[in-house]
Amino acid sequence: MFDYDSELVRHHERLMAALDVRPGDRVLDIGCGAGRTTRDAARAAAPGTALGVDVSGPMLARARRQAEAEGLRNVDFVQGDAQTRAFSPEHFTLAVSRFGTMFFSDPVAAFGNIGRALRPGARFVQLVWQAADRQEWHTVIRAALSHGLAPSASDSAAADPFTLADPDIVAEVLTRAGFTAVDVVDVREPVCYGPDTEGALAAVLELRMAKEWLSELDAASAERALDRLRVALDAHDSGDGVWFDSRAWLVVAHRS
Rank of each mutant, 00 (worst) to 15 (best):
F124H: 10
C32V: 06
L28A: 05
E90D: 12
D218C: 02
G112I: 02
R62D: 14
S256G: 09
L226E: 06
L127Q: 11
E223R: 13
I169R: 15
A18P: 06
P195F: 12
L205Y: 00
A225G: 00
V96E: 11
F2D: 00
V173C: 01
P195T: 03
R26E: 12
R36C: 09
A235M: 07
P58S: 14
T180S: 08
R10H: 13
A253R: 12
A171F: 06
V21C: 09
D40S: 14
A158D: 10
S88L: 15
A17Q: 11
A143L: 02
T49I: 11
A200S: 07
R36T: 14
L60P: 03
P23V: 12
E7R: 15
V187L: 08
E223Y: 00
A69W: 04
I169A: 11
L51C: 14
C32L: 07
G241N: 01
S152Y: 04
S88G: 09
Y4T: 06
I114L: 02
V173W: 09
L8A: 14
G71R: 14
A210N: 01
A202P: 07
S152L: 04
P107N: 02
V75K: 05
A132K: 11
G80K: 09
R62A: 13
R43K: 10
A165N: 02
S156G: 05
A225I: 01
D186Y: 01
D168M: 05
D20C: 10
A44M: 10
A45H: 12
R73V: 08
R119Y: 12
P58M: 15
F99T: 08
R26K: 15
H11D: 15
D227L: 09
T84Q: 08
D240C: 04
E189W: 00
V128E: 04
M16W: 11
V78R: 15
Q126M: 09
D54Y: 04
R142D: 10
A177E: 09
T197I: 02
V53P: 13
A210G: 02
A219C: 00
G115V: 11
R85A: 15
V182E: 07
P161L: 00
A34D: 12
R39T: 05
A86Q: 15
A17G: 15
Q79S: 02
E172D: 05
G241F: 02
A200V: 01
G115C: 03
P107Y: 04
A225Y: 09
I30T: 10
L164H: 01
A82T: 05
W249L: 08
V140C: 06
R10E: 14
W129F: 13
G24P: 00
G239I: 02
I141C: 06
A203T: 05
M1E: 06
E70G: 12
W129R: 13
E198C: 03
D227T: 13
H11I: 08
A67R: 05
A44D: 03
R176C: 10
R247M: 14
L28M: 13
H254E: 15
D29V: 12
H91A: 15
A232S: 02
